Amino acid sequence: MNIKERFVEYLKYKGIGQTAFEESAGLSRGAIAKKSGFNADSLEKIIVSCQDLNISWLLTGSGEMLIDKNILQEVKQPPVPYEFVQAMINERKQHDEMNAELIRQNGKLIQLLEESKKTVAVQKGDNASCADASGSGLEK
């Protein structure tokens, strides 16, 4: 028995039609019925869609068709403690507040810089008029 034959056996066991599975898993129509084997993309879609399918059995035929539900439960991650989540939320709020303050300070600095540029421009204009001695009677 090859991979496709084993997969068809799995679908029959689960009571899932080939066309229905192809559509739900994103496989091309007729991908299961084709005589050629599955490509890597198709196998990946099958693995993602069939969480209880023993991949070793699918590929080699050895072992059981289905993964033991007890094993699946052991593999799942334990829930994250509420205190940890709350601490992360509080830290995020502090970071948001600090970012808001930094944005406010940046706005003030930009405003001061613009005012400073205007002051420098006015001072340059005053210096230029002071340097012009025409009409002052100090000309040679």
Results as ranks from 00 to 15, higher is better:
Q51W: 07
Q73C: 03
D132S: 04
N2M: 07
S56H: 11
I47K: 12
W57H: 00
F21I: 01
S42R: 07
F21T: 00
I110H: 13
I46S: 00
S49V: 05
N54H: 00
I89Q: 13
A33I: 07
K14L: 07
N39Q: 06
V8Q: 11
E139G: 10
E101G: 03
D52M: 00
E83G: 08
D126L: 15
L53F: 02
K124W: 06
N99P: 02
K117V: 11
V120Y: 04
W57M: 01
P79A: 10
Q51G: 09
Y13L: 04
E5F: 05
C50T: 03
K93L: 15
M88S: 09
V75N: 07
S136N: 05
E23W: 06
E44D: 12
S56R: 14
E97T: 11
L138R: 13
E101N: 10
M98C: 11
N99C: 12
N54D: 02
A128Y: 08
G107D: 12
Q86V: 10
G125R: 14
Q73V: 04
L112N: 10
G107V: 03
M65G: 02
Q73L: 14
K124T: 06
I89R: 12
M1N: 10
G37C: 05
G15K: 02
E97S: 13
G30I: 04
K34R: 13
S24M: 10
G125H: 12
Q105H: 07
E83S: 10
E101R: 15
P79H: 02
S36H: 01
K45H: 03
G125Y: 08
S24Y: 01
L66F: 08
L59S: 05
A121L: 06
L112S: 11
S129K: 15
T19W: 03
D68W: 01
P81Q: 01
L102G: 00
G37E: 09
K14I: 00
K76E: 13
E64W: 01
N106M: 15
M98A: 14
K34C: 07
E97K: 15
V80C: 04
R6W: 02
K117D: 15
D126F: 15
I103H: 06
A128T: 11
L102I: 12
G135W: 06
Y82Q: 14
T60P: 04
I55D: 00
F38I: 04
G17M: 06
L58M: 06
N70H: 08
A128S: 14
P78S: 06
K124Q: 15
L53G: 05
R104E: 07
L58K: 04
C130S: 14
T119W: 09
W57R: 02
G26S: 03
G107I: 07
K45S: 00
E74T: 12
S56D: 12
K12P: 06
D126H: 15
G17T: 00
L27F: 01
M98W: 11
N39Y: 05
